[in-house]
Amino acid sequence: MKRTKAFISAILLLSGISLGAQNLSDLRVSEIVAQNENGLVDEFGERNGWIEIFNTSSGTVRFGGCYLTDDPGNLKKYHVPTTDRTTNVGPRQSVVFHASGKSWQGSFHTNFKIGNGSTVYLVSNDGKTILDELKVPADLPADNAVVKVPAGIKKIDSEIRTTATPTPGSYNGDVDAKSNSEIMKEKDPHGWVLSLISVSVVFSALFVLSIIFRLVGNLSMKAGKKKEKPAKAAKGRKAKPGEMTPEIAAAISMALQQEFGGEVYAAIAMALDDYLGNGVHDMESFIITISPSAGSQWAAKTQNFRQLPR
């Protein structure tokens, strides 16, 4: 019992650690405006530089406890409050921090300001691990932003650009980007390429599976033969008609496990009846009764016990 508890605790601990780490590592410093003269206004009517954090994952990430800083020598410069329930960022969503230098104005106001040439670091809740960073070019004009734009097939990689049209809190990628279906319509209008690839993949997957199970089957049969040899030598005879061999037991087991309906059960029972020479059921009109040669112990007390989950 102690071992089980310890095992479960260890698993929970490990999964918690890895999940936390995985989630936070999905955060990116995705956009920064250092000199905000005519752009985003905060809830106090002020314009400050701002920092956008983007969640690249498909799950919500809670980033309370993380740190933001512009000083590599002080990674714990601004601590995002852990008690604030709004410090969540949804899947593929972003949040904006105002670099106002007035952290008392709210969780989304940093205690430092930024300027051209600053580098903003997003630091994990351990205060040591830098999750991501973005440098503001020294010559970035006012109201322009440095952004990370999703790139590559999976849109996981990114490239850094500057833009005169900042998008605080919005997706930095091409919002007019084509869907996979539209791309396929252009590249493969008649569908032959996709069909050929798909058929090949289906065949390959099932072919490999068949090869693996041929090998597994061969190994299993070899192992089975080794085990059977001494038994056969002792017996030295063939199974008689009506005898319950492993093959017949397997056939009955398989038949009973399938939910085919009455007529198929009847067909299987009749086939077994043919094979076993009337050995399995009583000769009664329209009634098939499987009569085991040995007692089934159906009324034994152990059969009435409820099986507990393990």
Binding site: F203, F207, L209, S210, F213
Partner: peptide, 21 residues
């Protein structure tokens, strides 16, 4: 079991997927 005992039959399952494409 029927499939594991005759793994080659997996390929018939693959061929019948042609209907999809």
């Amino acid at each position: 079991s029927a499939l594991i005992s005759q793994p080659r039959l997996l390929l018939i399952g693959a061929a019948a997927q042609m209907g999809i494409f």
